[in-house]
């Protein structure tokens, strides 16, 4: 368990995660302020930003005081001086929208674009929120759980056709 850095918003839930990591659960309003406090507290590098779609898992295990939503944005911060990691899991809502971390860590640009592209998470104040992996005219966000993987019909030789 770690102490929250100076300047962190009041009332952020902190819990131990699997492995040696620690996870913080800010609300959407606390999110930017918390990451900013961590940055000032020596977490120089934002190693990862990704989103998770928990469709149908609203009853998942979360610490007390955290209201589960369908989407979660997960940020992994790394401190080179402390040699430690911290994970920030923010409940992004059912219509996912969180603040962009671009002004703190410019390196999240591509990662947030990826989360937008594949999950439809809106990062407010992101400078260039366009698709990055999928083509520009693609419909839907493929990593969402309600986005079907689809299938290509396999034509077997001499097998009767669909009709």
């Amino acid at each position: 368990m770690i102490d929250l850095p100076v300047g962190a918003p009041e009332g952020v839930v902190v819990a131990d995660a699997v492995g040696a990591d620690v996870a913080c659960f800010p609300t959407r309003e606390q999110y930017f302020e918390l990451v900013s406090a961590f940055k000032d507290g020596g977490y120089e590098l934002c190693s990862d930003v990704c989103a998770v779609d928990y469709l149908g898992h609203e009853d998942r295990l979360l610490p007390e005081g955290v209201a589960a939503t369908r989407f979660e944005v997960v940020v992994n911060l790394l401190s080179l001086t402390k040699r430690s990691r911290v994970r920030i899991r923010v409940q992004a809502g059912d219509e996912p929208q969180v603040a962009s971390l671009f002004s703190l860590y410019p390196g999240v640009e591509a990662m947030e674009r990826e989360a937008f592209d594949l999950f439809g998470v809106i990062f407010t104040d992101h400078p260039d929120l366009t698709r990055i992996l999928m083509p520009e005219d693609w419909e839907g966000h493929p990593l969402r759980k309600d986005y079907s993987v689809g299938r290509v019909p396999v034509q077997f030789k001499e097998a009767p056709g669909p009709r």
Binding site: G19, S47, L61, L78, R87
Partner: peptide, 19 residues
């Protein structure tokens, strides 16, 4: 078992993490 984890290793190109 249910849970979530981030594991990182040093790949020839940098930090390779798996969440």
């Amino acid at each position: 078992p249910a849970g979530e984890v981030y594991s990182a290793v040093e790949s020839p190109r940098g930090e390779l993490g798996c969440y």
